[in-house]
């Protein structure tokens, strides 16, 4: 029998990996990918808890998270495309027009 804590530890570690990728990569596409990793970690945690507590609300929330993640990624990527048209780079430090 797999205890619930193992699933929560997996979710926490996956979330931290995603957070680490988000904070340390210079590439904008990698930021989106790291956000996807974090959202998946949250989904694992929600569905595991919903299974062990025998409640469906966790799974409903996971359903909403999947749909909102899809919408968010779509809008984010199209904003990236629009910014790329202005300045053909995807490195984060090249977008420094607001720098003092």
């Amino acid at each position: 029998m797999v205890p619930l804590n193992w699933y929560l530890i997996l979710s926490v570690m996956l979330f931290m990996v995603g957070l680490f990728g988000f904070l340390t990569r210079r590439n904008m596409i990698m930021l989106f990918i790291s956000v996807e990793i974090m959202l998946n970690a949250i989904n694992i945690s929600l569905i595991a808890i919903s299974h062990y507590l025998q409640d469906m609300r966790g799974q409903v929330l996971a359903f909403f998270v999947i749909a909102c993640a899809a919408a968010g990624v779509a809008v984010g990527l199209v904003l990236l495309i629009a910014a790329y048209r202005n300045k053909p780079t995807i490195r984060l430090e090249d977008f420094d027009l607001l720098k003092g």
Partner: peptide
């Protein structure tokens, strides 16, 4: 924190 989490009240499904 995750290692010592305990279960709350059970649902109905």
């Amino acid at each position: 924190m995750a290692a010592e989490a305990t279960k709350g009240p059970m649902g109905q499904y």
